[in-house]
Write a protein that binds this DNA or RNA. Structure first.
Length: 291
DNA sequence: ATGGTTGTGTGACAA
């Protein structure tokens, strides 16, 4: 039978008795702290070649809006780009092969830094919220009384908890980003040695768990790679041999709302990017949703 | 062993 005849009898739009959410679909979402988009354009190209995500959420783009490399990224297939960047510091972006809508430039915890952007993308015929976050690192001293950067991190996490209780419970959402907290003992190379190191202190790990539980989010990476397996997404630049030392932390996360837990078809961390020439210190996390 | 490295409209500072 000629293809044209077959197309003529199979409508592209859902039949009246089908609800949009029942449409078959597959959406691959990646998150990556690239530590400067301009310094990492070749890596982004290689990552896209090898992984072909439909949506790529970036953190730490470190690029003023006016010189953001939108044109080469569009040529990679990401025609839809939304930014919260502004200056050479911080910065988040969502790149998508599918149209983005409902863009929200968030100003979480009243911090005047570009660290949060949200938008919707169509998945299985209905809007899916994408929340791309870059939580403040917090400086070196884990004491809010003497370190304003740590105080700002704590305030940011507390603000996210209240936000999460609304956004997470609404459903059809994916929260990704560099959350700068390794929440579980097996998310760091040494739980005991990192208990007083910013990113793994009880004050941070308990707060990140509060953010997650308030919204009922599913930690996608731990759904497929449960504890006690060690899983890391970040290795310091300061190690002589990052792979041999393997003193990593899981700072980068991909969460889905509870209603989408059953839609997770694949979840992967891509540590090979850490071995590429002049890498980011963070590696991508990728998840595929199917419906 | 309190170091070590990377990046930013170039220079102290964040990560």
């Amino acid at each position: 039978m000629p293809t044209g005849v077959r197309c003529a009898i199979v409508p592209a739009t859902p039949l009246p008795h089908e609800s949009p959410s029942r449409m078959a679909d597959r959406l691959k979402i990646a998150t990556w702290n690239v530590n400067s988009i301009r310094s990492r354009m070749d890596h982004v190209g290689r990552f896209v070649d090898e992984n072909a995500p439909d949506v790529l959420c970036l953190q730490e783009t470190r690029c003023p809006d006016g010189i953001f490399p939108s044109s080469p990224l569009r040529k990679l297939g990401y025609e839809h780009i939304v930014l919260n960047a502004k200056s050479g510091h911080h910065g988040v972006a969502i790149l998508s092969k599918r149209p983005l809508a409902d863009v929200v430039i968030e100003r979480t915890a009243g911090i005047d830094e570009p660290r949060h952007i949200a938008a919707t993308v169509t998945f299985a015929g209905a809007p899916l919220w994408l929340h791309n976050l870059y939580v403040p690192a917090g400086g070196d001293e884990p004491d809010a009384a003497i370190n304003p950067r740590f105080a700002a991190k704590i305030a940011f996490l507390d603000a996210l908890t209240a936000w999460s209780a609304v956004v997470g419970r609404a459903g059809r959402g994916v929260l990704v980003g560099d959350l700068n907290v390794a929440p579980l003992p097996d998310d760091v190379w040494s739980h005991k040695q990192l208990l007083s190191v910013v990113s793994h202190t009880p004050g941070e790990t308990e707060r990140l768990e509060a953010v997650r539980s308030a919204g009922g989010w599913v930690d996608a990476v731990r759904k497929v790679r449960p504890v006690p397996e060690k899983v890391f997404t970040w290795w310091s630049y300061r190690a002589k041999d990052w792979k041999a030392a393997n003193r990593g932390r899981r700072l980068d996360h991909l969460w889905v709302t509870a209603d989408l837990g059953g839609s997770l078809a694949a979840v992967e961390v891509r540590p090979e990017t850490r071995d590429w020439e002049r890498p980011s210190d963070h590696v991508p996390v990728v998840a595929t949703l199917t419906a």
